[in-house]
Amino acid sequence: MIVGILALQGAFREHEEMLTRMGVPCLQVRLPRDLAKVDRLIMPGGESTTIGKLLVMYDLIEPIRQRVLAGMPIWGTCAGAILLSSKIIDGKADQPSLNLMDIESRRNAFGSQLDSFEADVTVAGLDAPFHTVFIRAPILEKPHGECHAIATLPDGRVVAARQGHMLATSFHPELTLDDRIHRFFLNL
């Protein structure tokens, strides 16, 4: 099994290092032809506007959508989660999305960089809280249909959601040494 990591922009190296530590083969994906070689896809954190534009310019939107609809597991962290959602709130007017998960993402939902934070989050299916980091993070609103929240903050705001073989986290497991969410994804 080869895990693809979307490498248009952002923290793709961190995901790669985590998977390498776990002994999982991975491949950077920049073009549609790279996509054909992978069995799963991680979309990293970064700037969702930048990654979205490059997805459109290099004709990756439909090939990724088709692979995921045909069963390829996908996981988006932060910007990647925004790109998976069916609706983007507080984004640019024409911001592209893969429109795969039945959830709305609100960009920069906590404020500016000064409001970025670290916290322990309880994630359904994990034995103990997950210490992680939120950087200019989105929140995931109104999961519906097959999509359900798997982690919320104490005030109820959703920060991780799952819809079958699709996973979205508004935080960054790749910036920690804790590989439990990567393992969770590899088992989807």
Partner: peptide
């Protein structure tokens, strides 16, 4: 971490 998110940009 914010700088890490800017990488490749």
């Amino acid at each position: 971490g914010l700088a890490q998110m800017l990488k490749g940009g």
